[in-house]
């Protein structure tokens, strides 16, 4: 299986603090990979390095063999990576539909074509009935869905999801897991997700990468990784005891 995304020895320091240190992993095409680890492990920094928010100090990011290192976020988007934000960032005063239209305009020149596409995406994420409401009036679960909708509308080959399940109730988590699974299975969308909700990680992911203190400490099938003593000690321990 060819790797769609290849992350090689990625490092980033903030004022001397090693946020991410020589992290390597790859995401095969059509798979779902989960990035887990305790708070401050460097997960979101890794995301931001892939998405072009800031350049890495060292290392390389390639998508389908194309080097994305040093590109700006909008160029990374155009190259085929869509992302959501952990702290949701809706275009508050725009309608839900117009939020998604902005995403669709990444590929479409015409607003009309973008709108047609936005409506299809909203349908997909069960937001169609909210289409004409201002985005700022949405509930948190709907805002999370809107993040995914806007990212999907950019027609990515790889979707980066930063804790889209956090703060959702169990039934809402199940709905979102269904949507993501469906996108992956039916449309072959490759997904890289940061997630704390282990139930969803186990249900969705084909592979799990664990970060701790900016370093990769485990990489493998979900069942193997959760049995890894280092992972249990650094991250799962607390939850496993609960």
């Amino acid at each position: 299986m060819a790797a769609l995304l290849e992350v090689e020895r990625l490092s980033k320091r903030f004022r001397g603090l090693k946020a991410v240190s020589e992290v390597s992993f790859s995401v095969p095409e059509g798979r779902i990979l989960a990035l887990i680890g305790p708070n401050g492990a460097g997960k979101t920094t890794t995301f931001n390095l892939i998405a072009g928010v800031f350049p890495p100090d060292e290392g390389r990011v390639t998508l389908k063999g194309r080097n994305l290192t040093g590109l700006k976020p909008n160029q990374v988007c155009t190259a085929g990576i869509g992302r959501t934000f952990q702290i949701v960032k809706p275009f508050g005063q725009l309608t839900v539909e117009d939020n998604v239209v902005v995403g669709a305009l990444a590929r479409e020149r015409s607003v009309e074509a973008a709108r047609v596409q936005a409506r299809a995406v909203l349908e997909r994420l069960e937001l169609a009935d909210q289409a004409n409401r201002p985005a700022r009036s949405l509930t948190l679960p709907d805002r999370k869905r809107l993040e995914v909708a806007r990212a999907l509308a950019t027609r990515p080959t790889l979707l980066l999801l930063d804790e889209v399940l956090a703060g959702l109730r169990p039934t809402e988590v199940d709905r979102m897991v269904e949507v993501l699974r469906d996108l992956n299975r039916r449309e072959g969308l490759t997904i890289l997700m940061i997630e704390h909700v282990m139930r969803a990680v186990m249900a969705l992911s084909d592979r799990v990468v664990v970060l701790d203190h900016g370093e990769k400490i485990a990489d493998g099938a979900p069942a193997e990784v959760v049995a890894d003593p280092r992972v249990v000690e650094s991250y799962l321990g607390a939850e496993a005891l609960e």
């Binding site: 998405a51 928010v53 700006k72 976020p73 909008n74 988007c77 155009t78 869509g82 992302r83 934000f85 960032k89 809706p90 275009f91 508050g92 005063q93 725009l94 117009d98 239209v101 902005v102 995403g103 305009l105 990444a106 590929r107 479409e108 020149r109 015409s110 607003v111 973008a114 806007r150 990212a151 509308a153 950019t154």
Partner: peptide, 24 residues
């Protein structure tokens, strides 16, 4: 009502999210 107009509004509302949505 143009593509540019939507991008302007997105930049006004949330520059980071606009950029991540492909807006230069």
């Amino acid at each position: 009502h143009s593509r540019l107009g939507y991008q302007w509004l997105a930049v006004r509302e949330e520059p980071d999210a606009a950029e991540a949505s492909g807006v230069d």
